[in-house]
């Protein structure tokens, strides 16, 4: 039941791409290159998993071990850290998007790897297009997290300056 719900959620989120019409020459080239491409994609699948684990841990530690404790400390000292709280909330939201979008991307890459490219070159090409679009979304999430962590840092510096001036 849980699996069915999750699969339907992922399916909704996946990018729908119309089937591509390819020339005979393009199909021939896909068939000729796809075995090599398949090997590269298998390697990419593994290195992306490692990247996801590395980045995920890093992003999560920034949120849970730095942003949240500092925000709590500011509140406990009865100071106004609303801009930091707001940036941290945005960061958490983007971290959730990163997790979800990576899941969708990984699923599309796994689906692509399951296609027999010699038998279904057009499906394989479409799968590659879908995986690329989903990967771009993950890349956008990474950029958004980077931007928000910078914004949190800027807000922190402003807060520190304000406290210095006040004391």
């Amino acid at each position: 039941m849980f699996g069915a719900l999750a699969v339907s959620k992922i399916s909704e989120a996946q990018v729908q791409t119309p089937p591509t019409s390819l020339t005979d020459d393009a199909i021939k080239r896909i068939k000729g290159n796809c075995t090599e491409a398949q090997a590269s994609l298998t390697q990419l699948h593994a290195s992306d998993a490692l990247l996801r684990v590395t980045l995920g841990q890093l992003y999560e530690s920034i949120a849970t071990k730095l942003m949240t404790p500092l925000n709590s400390r500011i509140v406990l000292n009865k100071l106004d850290g609303s801009s930091l709280v707001s940036a941290a909330a945005t960061y958490e939201q983007q971290l959730g998007d990163f997790r979800d979008d990576y899941q969708v991307y990984e699923q599309s890459l796994s689906d692509l790897l399951a296609i027999k490219c010699q038998d279904r070159p057009v499906g394989y090409f479409d799968g590659l297009t879908k995986a690329r679009i989903n990967r771009e979304k993950v890349h956008d999430d990474v950029e958004a997290l980077r931007k928000t962590s910078r914004a949190y840092g800027d807000n922190f510096e402003m807060f520190a300056r304000k406290q210095k001036d006040a004391s």
Binding site: A26, A37, L44, L51, T54, I62, R132, R135, E136, L145
Partner: peptide, 30 residues
């Protein structure tokens, strides 16, 4: 921590380019 995260170029789309399959560019549409 943020500098460490910024150094990692995560999930750029180039590696899944169509050229991976087609070698010489975008396929012609029929």
């Amino acid at each position: 921590r943020t500098q460490k995260a910024a150094k990692i170029d995560g999930f750029s789309g180039d590696v899944l380019d169509e050229k991976l399959l087609l070698n010489d560019g975008v396929p012609q549409q029929q």
